[in-house]
Design a protein around this nucleic acid. Sequence first.
DNA 1: CGATGACTTGAACGCCATCAATCGCTGTGG
DNA 2: CCACAGCGATTGATGGCGTTCAAGTCATCG
Lengths: 231, 231
Amino acid sequence: MFTILSTDPNKKPRLVSELGGLSHTEEFKYSKDAEIFGEAGPADYIYQVIEGAVRTHKLLSDGRRHIGAFHLPGDIFGLDNGDFHRFTAEAIVDTTVRLVKRQSLERATKTEPAMVRSLLTMTTANLQHVENHILLLGRNTARERVAAFLIEMNGRLKSAGVIALPMNRRDIADYLGLAFETVSRMFRAFERNGYLRFLIDPRQRQIVILNAAGLTKLDAPRKRKDTFSVD
Amino acid sequence: MFTILSTDPNKKPRLVSELGGLSHTEEFKYSKDAEIFGEAGPADYIYQVIEGAVRTHKLLSDGRRHIGAFHLPGDIFGLDNGDFHRFTAEAIVDTTVRLVKRQSLERATKTEPAMVRSLLTMTTANLQHVENHILLLGRNTARERVAAFLIEMNGRLKSAGVIALPMNRRDIADYLGLAFETVSRMFRAFERNGYLRFLIDPRQRQIVILNAAGLTKLDAPRKRKDTFSVD
DNA sequence: CGATGACTTGAACGCCATCAATCGCTGTGG
DNA sequence: CCACAGCGATTGATGGCGTTCAAGTCATCG
């Protein structure tokens, strides 16, 4: 289904296992909202989230922001196959990352040609995520986008039946190309229509999906108004 | 600038030169609107446009269509790094392509490790095109999108100062995530405002850009209404 | 020469952005 | 300990932009 935005995590090479055997790996901690690397900065390292969450974004000339991806524990980011990063990366919450010098990767490709293939596999996975995302941004309504987001997150960070979102409404909005008020409205509409409920949480970031099948159907394009009402 | 959608053609490996030395290359002709390969079909070949133009698209479940890219002479397409194509490819006009068996590429990577790197380079180029396109679809107005499209095409297929578009308004609309009527309206608005003019052509596909700098500025996000009027 | 396809243009509606107000919680300082 | 500022989220009101529906033109083709 085109709306499943997350890439199968089992297909992602783990930094240690598949790229592993590398000497120069270190861990580092970033506090909430700290910048990990900047757009157009030198791409000296690639990263893997150990704990926490990371957003990668681009700023447009008028101040609008596009978030390209959210990176959760296990995810690899900062792989640009060039000398410069194409996104800025920031910690959404206090976050621990593992990092590997790109130079040592480059060196490793000399002795281990399979390494290049791993890079190709990861880049292809990125490409597929972006290709799926483009369908969302190009053609879908606000409701479809938010439904797709919830389905993605339900797959990626559901734990004990609960989605604990690390990011705020604005981050979600900038990921989906919407106003943050619209994201808020859609969340509440889903709640009123019985698709989800919020746990006790002042910031409304703990979500239980009650009707995943219904959300998946909403995500798919609609012809009629269905039985869904925003009011 | 993020709005330049085209990848620098000089950075693309040419199928013959960089991937070359391969025995199993053939040429093939497709007539207008013929399918070259189908989404989810086996990815047995990769392709290079010799003459003509190709569009790659995905169909959504309700019949809406997303065009991911237009491929012009010299461009390589159908490179999916997997066993199946992720797009459908069709000839926009009568088109000649060169094709290479993927199997022979795979074989070549064994004797020539640099080949994998070429594939990685091409995949990264695709990724960058999609990343740029996503900014357009996620955040920009119809005017910005059409301006960006014209700038892209001005860079890719201007010849003797004239852009001869191979695709119709609907193709452009499905590439930009707009209704085809909106594309038509924007084209005419640009004409009325002196940004371009049409050559004598019943289908209005021969365009001369009169004010590329102005279009580039329009493409960039706007705060005010500027001096541009749709009426 | 009627039919078809590509494009343009008009009119009306509806979705979502924008602006604005409010609420609840957190944390900080007096 | 309490007052208050500040942030995140919600909710309402309004308007604009782009879609949708519709009609009409022109060229091409069977």
